[in-house]
C-alpha cells in the first residue's frame, strides 16, 4: 500500500503573494472588453489615416473610378429596393391609418420614415452587400498575393492607394444613393397608397411638403455619411488585415474577412443609427 502523504505535503506550495481568485466570467468579459477596445482603436486610426490621405490630386482618377463602382453601379439596386420599400410602407400605412381615419397623413409617414430612417439604413446595407463585400475580397486577395507588400516596396502608400479613394467615393456616393432611395421610396408609397389603394394624391404630396424639414433631410444625410465611414472602413480594414487572421489562412481567410466585413458593417450601421438618431432628436 502506498504511503499517504500527510496534510502538510498535500497542501499547495506557498505562493509569493496573496492568492487571486479567478472568476471565469469576469475574465472573459475583461478580455472581450480589451479586444473590443483594441479593435475600435485600430479601426479609428485606420479611418483617420485613410481620411488624411484622401486629399491629394493624384487620388482624383481613382476616386472617380470608385464613385462609378460604389455609386453609379449601385444606383439601380438601391432604386429597386427603395421603390418596393416605399410601396410596402404605403400599403401597410394605408391599412393602419384607415383604422384611425388618418389616411391624409400617409405622405408624412412615408416621407419621414424614409428620409429619417429607412433611406440611410437600407441604402447602407445594400451598398454593404454589393460593394463592401467586393472591397473586402479585393483588398484581401491583394494582401495574400503580396500586392500590398509590392506597393510598399514601390514607395506607394497602400492605405492612400487602396483605402482613401474608396473612402472618398463612399462619402460622396452614400448621400446621393440615399437621396435616390428616398425619392424612389416616396414614389413607391405614392404608387401603392394613392394609385392602387385610392388615397388622395394632393393630400399625399401636400403632407410631404408640409412635414419634411431641412433638419430631417440633413439628419438623413448625416447618417449616410456616418454609415459610409463605417462600411468603407470596416470593409477595407477586414481585407487589409486578412493576413493577420488567426482562424484561417489564404483564400479561406479572404472568404472569412468578406463575411466579417458584411456582418460587422450591418451590425455597426444599426448601432450607429441608434446613436446618431438619439443625438438628432
Amino acid at each position: 500500500m502506498e504511503p499517504r502523504p500527510d496534510a502538510d505535503e498535500r497542501a499547495d506550495p506557498p505562493s509569493a503573494g496573496p492568492r487571486r481568485r479567478e472568476l471565469p466570467g469576469v475574465c472573459a468579459l475583461g478580455r472581450f472588453g480589451l479586444r473590443l477596445n483594441a479593435s475600435l482603436g485600430a479601426l479609428a486610426l485606420f479611418f483617420l489615416q485613410a481620411l488624411w490621405r484622401m486629399f491629394h490630386w493624384r487620388q482624383l482618377p481613382e476616386i472617380l473610378q470608385q464613385i462609378y463602382f460604389i455609386g453609379a453601379k449601385s444606383a439601380s439596386i438601391v432604386a429597386l429596393v427603395g421603390f418596393f420599400t416605399g410601396m410596402v410602407l404605403g400599403l401597410q400605412l394605408v391599412y393602419v391609418m384607415n383604422k384611425f381615419g388618418a389616411v391624409g397623413f400617409l405622405g408624412t409617414a412615408v416621407a419621414l420614415a424614409l428620409i429619417r430612417e429607412l433611406g440611410p439604413v437600407l441604402t447602407a446595407i445594400m451598398i454593404t452587400a454589393r460593394a463592401g463585400s467586393a472591397m473586402a475580397a479585393e483588398i484581401g486577395i491583394q494582401r495574400i498575393s503580396e500586392q500590398i507588400d509590392a506597393l510598399q516596396t514601390m514607395r506607394i502608400d497602400p492605405l492612400g492607394f487602396l483605402v482613401s479613394p474608396r473612402l472618398a467615393a463612399g462619402l460622396v456616393s452614400f448621400p446621393i444613393l440615399t437621396a435616390i432611395f428616398d425619392l424612389i421610396g416616396i414614389l413607391g408609397g405614392y404608387v401603392s397608397g394613392v394609385i392602387l389603394l385610392g388615397a388622395n394624391a394632393g393630400s399625399y404630396l401636400y403632407r410631404i411638403d408640409a412635414s419634411v424639414d431641412w433638419a430631417d433631410v440633413r439628419g438623413g444625410f448625416l447618417k449616410a455619411l456616418v454609415f459610409a465611414a463605417i462600411v468603407i472602413t470596416i470593409s477595407c480594414f477586414q481585407g487589409f488585415f486578412t493576413h493577420r487572421r488567426t482562424d484561417s489562412h489564404g483564400s479561406k481567410s479572404v472568404s472569412l474577412s468578406t463575411t466579417s466585413a458584411v456582418v460587422l458593417s450591418c451590425v455597426w450601421i444599426l448601432i450607429a443609427d441608434y446613436v446618431v438618431t438619439s443625438f438628432l432628436l
Binding site: Q142, S145, E146, Q147, D149, A150, T153, M154, R155
Partner: peptide, 18 residues
C-alpha cells in the same frame, strides 16, 4: 524615404496587380 527610394524588390511570386 531616401533609403527606400533607392531600393527595388522583385517578388518571388511576382506580386503583379491582376
Amino acid at each position: 524615404d531616401a533609403y527606400i527610394g533607392r531600393v527595388s524588390y522583385m517578388f518571388q511570386n511576382n506580386a503583379l496587380f491582376d
